[in-house]
């Protein structure tokens, strides 16, 4: 096995295990910490695909900023140590049914898609490098890029307006 394969399996196992721990941990603070581990594992996958910019930005934005805010809310609310859900039987039932249906839809959608014929280019693609990515974003995809930035700006303004009582 080449070193890339070993890295891939280690990262895949790490990502799956930590993602499972996110949903099975009773303590919400642990869930958040496991989610951060998941983000790191996914960033590792991005690096294997030579998408270095995406990997670093994933860590800066998700692991570094958004999860901090999650942790903030959980720490300040002092959420109960034992999970609040699961005590009622019908919630468990509803969760199982909706999860199963989602899985069904996912399998049905992926079964005949063209994804099967495409394999990821490990250590080969150049699109993830910052020079190439910047060129693509500001020439070919400039309109969607600008529209999404305006969307973010309006979301920010909206948050400030809602946050301001007077």
């Amino acid at each position: 096995m080449s070193i890339v394969q070993i890295l891939f399996w280690v990262l895949a196992a790490m990502a799956l295990f930590s993602a499972l721990m996110v949903i099975t941990s009773k303590n919400p603070v642990y869930s958040v910490l496991w989610l951060i581990v998941t983000f790191f594992a996914i960033s590792g996958h991005y690096i294997l695909l030579n998408a270095q910019f995406l990997a670093v930005v994933n860590i800066i934005v998700y692991a570094g900023a958004i999860m901090v805010l999650f942790l903030f809310v959980i720490m300040l609310m002092n959420a109960r140590q034992e999970g609040a859900g699961g005590s009622k039987r019908w919630i468990t039932l509803a969760g199982t049914v909706s999860g199963g249906i989602f899985l069904l839809v996912l399998v049905a959608a992926l079964k005949d898609s063209e994804l099967k014929t495409r394999t990821a280019m490990v250590m080969d693609g150049q699109v993830g490098l910052i020079k190439v990515l910047g060129n693509e974003l500001f020439t070919r995809y400039v309109v969607p890029f600008e529209i999404s930035s305006i969307l973010f700006l309006s979301a920010m303004v909206g948050a400030v307006v809602i946050g301001k009582k007077e």
């Binding site: 951060i36 860590i59 570094g64 901090v68």
Partner: peptide
Amino acid sequence: FGIVSVGVY
């Protein structure tokens, strides 16, 4: 920057 942003934890 990535590592500094994780330093908060």
